[in-house]
Structure formats: structure tokens, C-alpha cells
Write a protein that binds this DNA or RNA. Structure first.
Lengths: 152, 152
DNA sequence: TGCCATTAGGTGCATATACATGTATCTGTC
DNA sequence: GACAGATACATGTATATGCACCTAATGGCA
């Protein structure tokens, strides 16, 4: 049984695949000055206009504090702005700048190249199927931890 | 077309799923003092005896320098040792300590609980299929970048 | 009105991951 | 047997990710 534990861990399998694919995409994107995660953030902001940090974090299945950290280099480089929401001063609205839009456009070719190289190697249909499966995984609700020893 | 880009990126889909599952496993493992990646490293070392850093990195589809950084807290906490290989003094041999074996054993129940919660939510068979698919992805070779404008 | 539980973020810390660069070691070739 | 190239790591820097903890603003209710 111990023999197969290395191949039975769902998390390990996900991480290994993600590392491999990250390497491909980040290498392709390197010349554009964006990382895969950064591009995903910019793409989502472009699509939704002016999301709050909470909305962005939920959409990307990312912890709010992780998103906060991820936004810093992007704001620092002037690719997006973070402003207080007039209607709810607790919220922050994230918006793309002209510079951010331009950077996104510049990175488009590199992203397409990475997509193409991945799907050439893995298969276009297989990739589409895998993405659909992964979306299901990302949306899973895991319920309660199995109570080891129910208390009281 | 822009409408679907957010769901077309293979890397984004992988990252989102990995984040979600990482949260589950790391939460379950928290009480054992290990992270998912750390456990994966210890499990592989236990299985292979005394791998070199390069072997470990390749097996985990992890950059050598990333592995190096990942090993530091584990060595610091006395869970494994890193020694010079007598036969090739460039290489380092990674070995589990008693303490590392004990920690692994302690974390076993938490890992099983995470596995169980994941597979209860996602399906045991589906999980097995997904792991197999992900292993294929992790082993992909992406060949040459499509030469944009062939030089010379 | 005033208070407090809730909600939305921000900060600090620790690990995770990779690239660029530097160092030590080995190995084939002359 | 010395040296060039290759091999195996180590280090510094930057982003990626999440937890514990803290602050600020909102909204309901006595």
C-alpha cells in the first residue's frame, strides 16, 4: 500500500501538473513581463470592469490576502488601480489602466503560443475536457471534516 | 472571443483547482505541522531511500532551486538530512531522519482524511482518472517554441 | 442615538516556485 | 595530467499562496 501512496495523492498530482504547465506558460510570457497568474488577474478585471477584491478573489479561487499580495506588483507597475468604493468605503475597486490594457494586448501572442504548444502536445479536445473537469474541482464544496471523535 | 478567454486558459484552470485542493489538504494537515508539498517530499524520500536533489526535483516536477528552498525548513526542523555524496561530491543525498519518519506517520491520518473528503465530494473513480490524466500532463514534452520569424 | 456583530481589507510571517548567477566537482581530450 | 565544458548545487531576488491577526466601515437593534 505504501508503494502506491506517491501516486494516490490528489494534491501531489495537481501540483506536479501545475508546475509543469506553469513553466511552459511563464517561459512563453516572460518577454511580455507578465506571469501566468498576473495575466489571469488582468484578464478577469478586463472582463468584469471594476470588480471588488472579494469578487476577484472568489472568481480566481484565491485567498483574499493572496490576491492582495498579487495585486501589489501590478499596481506598482501601473497596470491597474485600486480605489475605495464610494458606495461602500470598505470595498476596493480594481480597474485596468491604459498601460494594463496595453500590456495585456502585448502578451496575447505569447499566451496563444503557450496555449498552442500545450494543446499540440496534449490534444485540443483533451485540454478542453481537462479544463472542464478542473472547473468542477475548483468549485467543489468539501463539507465538514469527518468528526474523528464526536465531541459533546 | 474575449468572452471565453477566461475559461480557455489551461494554466488558469490548473491553478484554480490546485488552490482549492491545496486549501483542503493544508487545512487537514495543519495539525501535523506539515504542508502538502512537504509531505510529498518526505513520502518520496521514504520510498526511494536516499535520492539526490536532482532525482527528487525530477520526480516532483520541481525546479532544483525550488526544491532546495523547500528542503530548508525540513532540514532545519530535523525531519531530513542533506549530505555530500561520497561517490560524487557535487551531489547531495537526502535522507529521512527518525523524526521525519515519525512526523510522516503522524500526518497519515490527516492525509487520509483529506483524501477521503476530496473523493467523497469528487468521486473516487473520477479522482483516479484525474490523477492519471494529470500524470500525463506532468510528463509532457512541449518541444520547440513555434519559431515566430525564423532567424538566419 | 449607540453599540456591537458582520463584512472588506491590510500586514506580517512562513512556505512555494522559478530565474539569473555563482561555485564546486567531475570528465573527456590532448 | 592540465584544461575546457558539462554537471550538481547554492544563493539572492521576485512573485505566489495562505494563516493569524489587526483596522475600518457598515448595518441592525435596543
Amino acid at each position: 500500500m505504501a508503494k502506491t501512496e506517491a501516486t494516490r495523492c490528489n494534491l501531489t498530482a495537481l501540483r506536479k501538473a501545475t508546475r509543469r504547465v506553469s513553466q511552459l506558460y511563464d517561459q512563453a510570457l516572460a518577454t511580455s513581463g507578465l506571469r501566468g497568474t498576473q495575466r489571469a488577474i488582468l484578464v478577469h478585471v478586463r472582463r468584469t470592469g471594476a470588480p471588488t477584491m472579494g469578487e476577484l478573489a472568489a472568481a480566481l479561487v484565491l485567498d483574499r490576502t493572496a490576491l492582495n499580495h498579487n495585486l501589489k506588483p501590478l499596481a506598482r507597475d501601473g497596470l491597474l488601480t485600486i480605489t475605495v468604493d464610494k458606495n461602500d468605503r470598505r470595498s476596493r475597486l480594481v480597474r485596468l489602466t491604459k498601460r494594463g490594457e496595453a500590456r495585456l494586448a502585448e502578451s496575447q501572442a505569447a499566451w496563444l503560443e503557450a496555449q498552442d504548444r500545450f494543446e499540440t502536445a496534449f490534444g485540443t479536445r483533451q485540454a478542453a475536457d481537462l479544463r472542464q473537469t478542473l472547473e468542477l474541482v475548483a468549485a467543489l464544496e468539501f463539507g465538514e471534516p469527518a468528526a474523528d471523535v464526536p465531541v459533546s
